[in-house]
Write a protein that binds this DNA or RNA. Sequence first.
DNA 1: CATTTGTTTCATTTTTTATTGAAATATTAA
DNA 2: TTAATATTTCAATAAAAAATGAAACAAATG
Lengths: 174, 174
Amino acid sequence: MITLQAKGDKPSSAEKLGDLTPLEIEAIDLFISFLRMIGMPKSVGEIYGLLFASTRPIAMDELINRLHISSGAASQGLKLLRELGAVKTVYIPGARKDHYTADLELSRFATVFIKEELHPRLSRGLERVRRMEELLAEFPASEQKAASERLTKLRHWLEKGDTMLPWIIEFLKT
Amino acid sequence: MITLQAKGDKPSSAEKLGDLTPLEIEAIDLFISFLRMIGMPKSVGEIYGLLFASTRPIAMDELINRLHISSGAASQGLKLLRELGAVKTVYIPGARKDHYTADLELSRFATVFIKEELHPRLSRGLERVRRMEELLAEFPASEQKAASERLTKLRHWLEKGDTMLPWIIEFLKT
DNA sequence: CATTTGTTTCATTTTTTATTGAAATATTAA
DNA sequence: TTAATATTTCAATAAAAAATGAAACAAATG
């Protein structure tokens, strides 16, 4: 593969089918790292990163070529990002292929993570604690006290965490 | 393996080398789910879950037997939890083996995650954005504006996120 | 409607992450 | 000491997660 780039070249000239520019690489790296934190595979970070770095809309085959990912990964990654609302399809007159751009509302990632991962887990956690508190009733009195203290502590903590989520969402949105 | 438990038995009788009680199972499940979210393997969740559910200190071989995990997983899991401060060694007069208890300061998990994962990533992200803003200088004026808007937006968002972390830590602690 | 082009699906493969358990090391007891 | 017990380490293995790419499907073109 050709990785050369004429010396004086300013970015944007070597794009399209060429290799990634330094700026693109930085952006991709950044989003790989962030999206991985909320459980997304590398390929999704790459896709969003490249779309974020690029002003003009990009078609799937360009993502495949420039990122060197498979069509499967590109298709699934785009689907996921579209479902999140993090990527939009752009209409380009006379273009056969679909073209994509990054939606810049970054809070979306945090929000989705909170709503779909964190909050449900806290809720299920709280249910569980209640169930545990019931189970505790059948314990010998000797153990009841210490155990129920722990459960109360755990419940308080889960409740507090859950209270916090809407704030965080709000704060990040504005 | 024996999984029976006489009908009238109240918990705590079948412990030690027996199977897990319903309460323990709930606690373990809960902590597997939570600790997995901050990137810890199942075995660590199991260990902390069992220690949390148990009032009395537990030795490593009991963890191994009751959770059916290997000595390696037990040793490494305990090491990690000790390093986090989430598990303490308890001195028991005349006991050969080390005994462990769960530290109940649950905010510790969130705090560690924030300080060791989230904050460093935001910092590195900010560095990167600055680097990108420099790279941008070499761009054709036509692309400069749109791109620099994005970077500014990204930078603001990272800064805002990073501001928030100390609050969250504070709030969860109290 | 046939053909070309673009996209999705999903069984297979690759990569990454976690677990195992035997051997090495450390610790306590006799 | 030495033997017995407890713990850690780490190469090998297993399990989980992600990526691949060929085949099925869909959409646009002429």
